[in-house]
Write a protein that binds this DNA or RNA. Structure first.
Length: 456
RNA sequence: UCCUCUGUAGCUCAGUGGUAGAGCGGGUGGCUGUUAACCACUAGGUCGUUGGUUCGAAUCCAACCGGAGGAGCCA
């Protein structure tokens, strides 16, 4: 039976009979034998295989192996006499399952991230990407664990939607109409009998379930048709959106902070080898930052206080700081990277700059909104307490020029047994960037979709 | 949508007006318990495309195409 390289390397004793299968990273020949570095993706490290020239078919199989070939190796696990590894396999049989080729694009030396993106089907075989996607998998697991441990119910909100959440953000149209029919506006002849889109958020649908099951979360793909060209934006990304009934903004912020700390701790505990690789080759300050986030309370500051801090900072910003305006990226970065030097939650924003569903505070000027900012990335979480009072919600919809009929089901939640509730959205890829130190969102998602590019 | 940078061998890059280069990768040979192995030889390029300036353009100019970064919007 096959043993994964991860388990082979953790072995506590020699093994007389072992089967390893994977892809060859490199081969080095000696006069009487060859070294094969075998990787199967189960961990970052390779297992070294010694293939003696006397094994059957040595010249036809082993000496023809090129980087990238898939092989099946039987042999003995023995203590290595070389310095750099504890164990190695002395092969008794090497079967090449699939040969590689001269032009296999992944080399042992450094490649640019741009080049690796162009071979997204092969880049998981590179150390960096293997590590990224193992961490991605672990973080997805830890997210479910976090919420399930706290009695949250996982809800699958729709991917095709007829509602335009937040009334903002460009959406991808989903249609079976042809160009002429679209121009003629024959939406009623479309597949669903109306205009439909790919979801930009599961929040509104999530609220309906929170107002029945109390604590829920969604975790799935989200789509934005915005023409954003930055290292932090993708057209298709994954988002985690909890929604909690009988909950106010304070508890909402606490949950977001707990979640981020939980995930960082989980990564430190379960992805140590991969994180060490990132710490060495991607982001020298990674461990310092993660340990800091794990152990220290996050800062909290109201929007009003944040504006005061920025005004008093004496720092010259490209865009002026002004109460009533959104915080610019440079302002957010100053707060989290220079002023507090740790993650910081900014809350209670002016009502004018926030969407219709956020709860109006007693000051009648601000809404119970919050953004969690982290060094290096900026906003990683955005959330709010939702407006649960029917009259105020309706008034706010009118102010935002929203058609009440389009949101009748959303309004119904306030009509029938309304409760205070709150929630937030956590960008999964942004979290991964924070945890791995990888600087570009395109490199933490398997097949990135960005404006002008949907390869593979 | 706006601003900035960038495009030279399979990959990573040097070359800034005068015969197209290195390292790695590939091939061949050698050597070695090697480990981003080492040594020698070798193949490999319409310098993103088109046009212009010039005796002469990878190099200067323009447009276009591709890639990247930033802003806005947000996750």
């Amino acid at each position: 039976m096959r043993t994964l390289v991860r388990d082979i390397l953790k072995s506590e004793s020699e093994v007389g009979d072992i089967l390893a299968q994977g892809w060859v990273r490199t081969r080095r020949d000696s006069k009487a034998f060859s070294f094969i570095e075998l990787n199967d993706g189960s961990c970052l490290a390779n297992v070294q295989v010694i293939a003696d020239a006397t094994i059957p078919g040595y010249e036809e199989s082993v000496l023809k192996i090129q980087t990238g070939a898939s092989v099946s190796i039987k042999g003995k696990l023995v203590a290595s006499s070389g310095g750099k590894q504890k164990w190695e396999i002395h092969a008794t049989e090497v079967e090449v399952l699939g040969h590689s080729h001269d032009d296999f694009p992944l080399q042992k030396k450094g490649h640019s991230m741009e080049f690796l993106r162009s071979i997204a089907h092969l880049r998981p075989r590179a150390n960096l990407f293997g590590a990224v996607f193992r961490v991605r998998s672990r973080m997805a697991y830890a997210i479910h664990q976090f919420f399930q441990e706290r009695d949250f119910i996982y809800v699958h909100t729709p991917i095709i939607t007829a509602s335009d959440c937040e009334g903002a953000g460009e959406m991808f149209r989903v249609t079976t109409l042809n160009g002429e029919q679209i121009s003629a506006g024959k939406d009623e002849e479309d597949f669903f009998g109306k205009k439909t889109y790919l979801t930009v958020s599961g929040q509104l649908e999530g609220e309906t379930f929170a107002c029945a099951l109390s604590n829920i979360y969604t975790f799935g793909p989200t789509f934005r048709a915005e023409n954003s060209h930055t290292s932090r934006h993708a057209s298709e990304f994954w988002m985690i959106e909890p929604e909690i009934a009988f909950c106010d903004l304070d508890a909402d912020m606490q949950l977001a902070e707990d979640l981020v700390q939980y995930l960082v701790s989980d990564a430190l505990e379960h992805c140590a080898e991969d994180l060490a690789f990132f710490g060495k080759f991607v982001d020298k300050g990674l461990f310092e930052r993660l340990e800091f986030v794990k152990s220290r309370a996050f800062e909290r500051v109201s929007y009003t206080e944040a504006v005061e801090i920025l005004e008093k900072s004496g720092k010259k910003f490209e865009f002026p700081v002004k109460y009533g305006h959104n915080l610019q990226s440079e302002h957010e970065r100053f707060l989290t990277e220079e002023h507090f030097k740790c993650p910081v939650t900014v809350y209670n924003y002016p009502k004018e700059i926030k969407p219709f569903y956020m709860r109006l505070n007693d000051d009648d000027k601000t809404v119970a909104a919050m953004d969690l900012l982290v060094p290096g990335i900026g906003e990683i979480v955005g959330g709010s307490q939702r407006e649960e009072r029917l009259d105020l919600l309706k008034a706010n919809m009118a102010k935002h020029d929203l058609n009440e009929e389009d949101y009748s089901w959303y309004v119904d939640l306030r009509k029938y047994g309304t409760v205070p509730h709150a929630g937030f959205g956590l960008g999964f890829e942004r979290l991964l960037m924070f945890v791995t130190g990888v600087a570009n969102i395109r490199d933490v998602i398997p097949f990135p979709r960005v404006p002008g590019s949907a390869e593979f």
